[in-house]
């Protein structure tokens, strides 16, 4: 929810009150525009366009019902429409509308037709559940209970910790930066060639809501190690266990958090069905 946008939309509606000789059509347009602005920009993460469209369609129905549920309003709206179509002072505006409308439709059709092929819509799991343990270079790593072995250094030995982070920085800029980008926003040089695009670590819904073990799992096993619910689009991320040592992978994990300022998700007691990841 973006409070500023919400306030701006409300303020806009409030301002309409003070417009002299505001008529019912102006109000309807105002309400529609305010709702549009709020739905489009006021909610974070943004609503899918299908939902925005549905909400706006319902609102449009309601507004049309409102204007025609009162004969005075309805007659006024009709009069304005007739005036627009017949009076001389509107001739230019009318012509512009008459030319623009088909153009807009044509433009829409053009965009629809030229739109590239899109992958089918399917409920792909963005963060699939990690396995309980993985095997890296012959060593079993318990993803449920083990933490980053170097995380403890952060408080115990800051100097050694900084060294690990620096090593992680080196690893990141040698290997990861091409896809995940200079500022880790998932917009590296190669990023645009992939589907799914590389993860944006700055975003609050990626590493900030995951534990370090999860990050380690994703680095070590990469796209080929993703479980099948993450199909149909397999990530292009390589399995870095083939190229990096275990320590390097933990170090780069430290660096990801250090650089973005996020903290890894705290460990919870896991009971019942599944545990968080």
């Amino acid at each position: 929810m973006n409070i500023l946008i919400l306030l701006a939309a409300c303020a806009g509606l409030l301002a309409l009150r003070f417009v002299p000789k505001m008529n019912i059509l102006g109000w309807l347009v105002g309400w529609w525009a305010a709702t549009f602005v709020f739905l489009r920009w006021g909610i974070n993460p943004p609503l899918p366009t299908s939902i925005q469209g549905m909400f706006l369609a319902i609102l449009t129905l309601s507004l049309l019902a409102y204007i025609s549920a009162n004969s005075a309003h309805f007659r006024f709206a009709l009069d304005r429409a007739v005036a627009f179509a017949t009076e001389k002072k509107y001739t230019v505006a009318l012509l512009v509308t008459l030319i623009l409308l088909p153009c807009l439709v044509a433009l829409r059709v053009y965009f629809d037709v030229t739109e590239g092929p899109a992958p089918p819509l399917s409920s792909r799991t963005i963060h699939p559940p990690p396995p309980v343990s993985i095997e890296v270079a012959g060593r079993t790593i318990d993803l449920v209970n083990d933490d980053n072995p170097y995380r403890a250094l952060e408080t115990e030995d800051p100097a050694a910790f900084a060294e690990h982070v620096a090593n992680g920085r080196r690893v990141y800029y040698e290997n990861c930066v091409y896809c995940h980008g200079d500022d880790m926003a998932g917009d590296g040089l190669f990023a645009h060639g992939y589907d799914p695009i590389p993860a944006n670590f700055q975003d609050a819904t990626t590493i900030a809501m995951l534990q370090e073990g999860y990050i380690f799992w994703r680095i070590a096993k990469g796209g080929p190690g993703l479980p099948s619910e993450s199909t149909p689009w397999l990530s292009a991320m390589p399995a870095w266990e083939n190229f990096l040592t275990e320590e390097e992978m933990w170090d780069v994990t430290l660096f990801l958090y250090d650089f973005t300022g996020h903290r890894p998700r705290a460990r919870e007691d896991h009971g019942g069905g599944g545990d968080g990841h």
């Binding site: 993460p45 943004p46 899918p48 899109a118 819509l121 409920s123 792909r124 963005i126 963060h127 589907d195």
Partner: peptide, 25 residues
């Protein structure tokens, strides 16, 4: 009306679903 017609899992394009972190907003 809006509340009633809001689906639980939404129809979204890949980019949108990615922004939402899944098919649930």
């Amino acid at each position: 009306f809006i509340v009633w017609a809001t689906p639980h899992s939404l129809v979204a394009t890949v980019e949108e679903a990615r922004a939402m972190g899944g098919s649930h907003h």
